Amino acid sequence: MERTAGPDGGRRDRDGEGRARNARPRDGLGRPLPYGAEGVPRQPEGVARTPAQTVAEAQALLDGGRPFHAHEVFEDAWKAGPEEERALWRGLAQLAVGLTHAARGNTTGGARLLRRGAAGAEEWAALSGRPNPYGLDLAGTVSWARDLAGSVEADGPPVDAAARAPRLRGR
């Protein structure tokens, strides 16, 4: 990663192919930290995982209070998985981002993304006829997301991301 001048003359982080990439360290909720600060390890992008690996890795990150990083894992599955499963993984990524926003203190964004992800996962399950793909408890996850969205709106954020993490395969 190197810092080069962007079109506006400002310095930007770029990968080896010249694409803009933010190399700043991040905290556990994905917020950028100053250069030189110690952050948490970032999830590598574009990793090919089996669905079981995706669910296991995302659950471990959620349990560790790192929903932003779980979102990155779901996003890899969304972008690289079979077309017929993209809505499932997109919905799960939105749930993780909703939890991220709720943990960061963003009531509106957190609740909105939790509900959007819940609706997407629920719709995918209904259309696919697969309510429990890869051992996922989609009904339980959807219920968790809607309950958390209501709680965030009623009680206010921030929430403890690890304490409020979903159990993707049920309790």
Rank of each mutant, 00 (worst) to 15 (best):
G105F: 15
A103E: 03
G28K: 05
R112H: 03
E38W: 01
R146C: 06
A23E: 05
D147G: 12
P7D: 05
D15Y: 04
P44S: 03
E72D: 15
D15C: 06
A103Q: 10
G150R: 00
E17M: 02
G28T: 03
R49N: 07
T141I: 01
T50L: 02
T50V: 00
E83K: 10
R167Y: 08
E72C: 04
A126R: 14
A60S: 05
V97Q: 13
T100C: 09
A60P: 05
R11G: 06
D27T: 10
A163F: 13
E83G: 04
L33C: 12
F68V: 10
R104Y: 13
D8R: 04
F68H: 15
A119K: 14
A154V: 11
V40F: 08
L92H: 12
L61N: 07
E83T: 03
G129W: 02
G105Q: 11
R12S: 09
W78P: 01
A145D: 10
R3Q: 14
P7Y: 06
V73H: 00
E123H: 08
P166E: 12
T50K: 00
L127T: 12
P133S: 07
G65W: 11
Q94A: 04
A52Y: 08
D76R: 12
T108S: 05
G135N: 11
S128A: 15
G117V: 02
L88T: 14
V73D: 05
R3M: 11
A145K: 12
R14F: 00
G105A: 05
G46W: 14
A119I: 01
G28S: 12
S128D: 03
R169P: 08
R130K: 13
P166C: 12
G9T: 02
E45L: 08
R42M: 02
G110V: 09
G109P: 10
R19H: 06
A96E: 06
V152L: 12
S143F: 01
L88H: 15
R11S: 14
G81Q: 11
A23P: 03
Q59H: 08
R146N: 12
